[in-house]
Design a protein around this nucleic acid. Structure first.
Lengths: 256, 256
DNA sequence: GGCTAATCCCGTACAGTGTACGATGATAGC
DNA sequence: GCTATCATCGTACACTGTACGGGATTAGCC
């Protein structure tokens, strides 16, 4: 049975890979390696970025590297570990902007924006980051940097962790919605408006506006405002504002 | 290529299925149907609940119904539509508690708790609800009921929609984290503590605490508090509190 | 009662997946 | 030169969703 997610294999082997720590076999008999872990990971990221996560197959990556599919297994124990390596790599290469002023709101907004950009650049992240992130250098550096933005605000350590989890979960949630809106518009031959036009006659027949008055009113208002069923941009702006307000209540209570 | 998500097929056909509206073929020549859409959907939900989403295959569902795999396609155009039907069904059957008092905080807390329970009862929801939800009777009734909890607070219609999206996105995010913690503990033969014991020697060798001071301090504190890498229960309680505080700032500004 | 057309059920087949297994060949140390 | 070791990779297997088409069954019509 295919696994698709890590943790199934030897965790120590996975950690060695993430940190590029040489394993037990330092003896160098046998033929030279033609590739490297980094090249395999880079090829996988390239395929995922360009063709989507469904194109990330061992055969496709091998083809991109000009190598037979099974050769990849000399560099990576399996696909699950490769996905972990991809996650850690893009987290390590992530661009992190310096907030203009020193307010915590500006710092957290920058973190949210940076993570949003990360998900926009690598849409496959959301389909892969279900389990807990791999403890590689990229992920840990990211964790440290983002935690620092919450340091010195009077929060307890566990509160800092919880606040960051809250913020990153929100960004991932909106990124997921954005990706869904993008793909549903892409792989389907008809776009949002065409879908609506095709569905409207039947919906009007089965949907009873008197039975669902609030849904009818709000849904119509939202549809008119967004010109679609949902607007990821608006959801991000609204949610981030509320989220920072909510954290502000806690931070102010600690400061005062 | 397998699709796995809806929107690919005829949207009108999907809507007809969701609302159980009879299609064009009302002519009833030919043999009697031995099953029904409801039975197929119920069997699929049962398999998903009991054996996980990875067990939801056409062959497995057919087996549960005592029927050949291809027979399912007389009731459902494909797996994507079946997943939509599953989502709509569990949304319609969802239990919704009445909040004890009339405060909006109590109402929204009840909505969050109900959705949390929904995700606990049907863990496969998070792996399936990537795209926008199917516009079936169950989903729409849920949308209407939950919007009503935000009505009359002085929010604009689009704000009501955004606030609900924010709340449900948060619940889904924590449910995803909880599911990840559950499965990573389940399918792996070693639990959280064993994993840590196996990984600790290597991590101590590669992880430089002086280079990542905040991560080291906060990570240690969180690990000690949770006795794990993450605590979904705590993340839910913390996040919901902040979220309601943040919405409260907006609601108060509208009321005053 | 026969005939036709529609409809259900389902056996077979296909393209695609991750990867286990083992054969082949290249290289380094003795 | 011998041998142990390792990279490469061809083949094979179990599994997925589902296209296709062939029987079997039934309703409407003459």
């Amino acid at each position: 049975m295919p696994t698709h997610r890590s943790g199934t294999g030897d965790p120590v082997r996975t950690l060695e890979l993430l940190w590029r720590a040489p394993g037990a076999g330092v003896n160098q008999r046998g033929p030279r390696q033609t590739l490297s872990v980094d090249r395999v990971v880079a090829a996988a990221i390239g395929v995922a970025d360009a063709e989507g996560v469904e194109a990330v197959t061992m055969r496709r990556i091998a083809q991109a590297l000009g190598v037979a599919p099974m050769s990849l297994y000399t560099y990576v124990p399996g696909k699950a570990e490769l996905l972990d390596l991809m996650i850690d790599t893009v987290c390590g290469q992530m661009t992190h902007s310096q907030p203009p002023d020193g307010s915590w709101r500006a710092r957290l907004t920058a973190i949210a924006d940076d993570n949003r950009a990360l998900h926009e650049r690598h849409p496959w992240l959301i389909t892969v980051s279900t389990a807990r992130p791999p403890l590689g250098p990229g992920v840990i550096e990211k964790y440290d940097r983002e935690l620092a933005a919450l340091d010195g605000l009077g929060l307890a350590d566990v509160e800092m962790d919880a606040a960051l989890t809250f913020l990153l979960g929100f960004v991932e949630s909106t990124a997921r919605a954005a990706a869904a809106a993008r793909t549903s518009q892409q792989d389907s031959t008809l776009d949002e408006q065409q879908w609506w036009e095709a569905s409207a006659p039947l919906l009007e027949r089965v949907f009873d506006a008197e039975r669902y008055p609030t849904a009818a009113r709000v849904g119509a208002a939202a549809g008119a405002a967004y010109e679609a069923a949902a607007d990821p941009e608006h959801a991000y702006a609204f949610g981030l504002g509320r989220l920072l307000d909510g954290l502000g209540v806690l931070i102010d209570s600690r400061a005062g």
